[in-house]
C-alpha cells in the first residue's frame, strides 16, 4: 500500500541524511522524496512516499520519531489530503509535431516554458498519475529529458501540520 508521510525536520546539516539512512538501514523503501525549508527557516518539511502494510508504516513512523531531529511525522494518507508533483519535460518538437505537442500540453494545463527550433520544455503540475498520463499521451513524440520533483502533500481543510 502506498503511503505519503509528511515530516517536519530541524533544518540542520545532516538531519536529512539521518532520515534517508534510517530507510536504508531498516530496509524500508523510498519511492519519492521532496524536501525544502518552511516559512520558519529553522524547519524543513519533507514529503516522502513509501509502500508497506500498516505494521510497517507504524514501524517507520515510530523509528522516524526516534530521530532526535525529527519534530513531527504525519501519515497524510490517513486522511483527506492534496498531492502535487511538478514535472519539467523536454520533448523533440519539429514540423507538424510542434502543434500536436502544444495541443497536448494545453489539454493537461501545462505550460511551454522554453522553446528552441526543434524542442519544447514543458512545465506540468498535478498528481503523479496526471504526470504519468501526460507522458503516455505524448505517445510517439521523442522525450529528451524528464525531471520530476517528487510528491508534495498537505492535509485538506483545517488539518494543519505545524509545531
Amino acid at each position: 500500500m502506498r503511503r505519503l508521510l509528511a515530516i517536519l525536520l530541524e533544518n540542520e546539516a545532516g538531519a536529512l541524511s539521518r532520515v534517508i539512512g534510517l530507510f536504508a538501514q531498516r530496509n524500508y523503501n523510498i519511492e519519492t522524496l521532496n524536501v525544502a525549508p518552511t516559512e520558519d527557516e529553522t524547519l524543513s518539511r519533507v514529503t516522502l512516499s513509501t509502500t508497506g502494510d500498516e505494521t510497517r508504516i507504524e514501524q517507520i513512523t515510530k523509528h522516524l520519531n526516534r530521530l532526535i531531529e525529527v519534530v513531527k511525522v504525519v501519515d497524510l494518507t490517513d486522511g483527506d489530503h492534496l498531492e502535487r508533483e511538478l514535472m519539467l519535460i523536454k520533448v523533440r518538437a519539429v514540423a507538424d509535431k510542434r502543434e500536436e505537442v502544444k495541443r497536448c500540453c494545453d489539454i493537461f494545463r501545462g505550460q511551454v516554458i522554453d522553446v528552441t527550433s526543434d524542442a519544447y520544455t514543458i512545465q506540468l503540475a498535478g498528481t503523479s498519475e496526471k504526470l504519468d498520463a501526460f507522458i503516455r499521451a505524448l505517445d510517439e513524440t521523442p522525450i529528451l529529458e524528464v525531471v520530476r520533483s517528487g510528491v508534495s502533500g498537505i492535509g485538506r481543510a483545517d488539518k494543519i501540520l505545524s509545531l
Binding site: A13, G14, S17, R18, G21, Q25, I68
Partner: peptide
Amino acid sequence: MVGVSRPVVKHSYLVR
C-alpha cells in the same frame, strides 16, 4: 565519523 557511526548512535554532533 558522524557518517560512519550514524546507524549505531542515538544521536551525534559535529562541532562547527
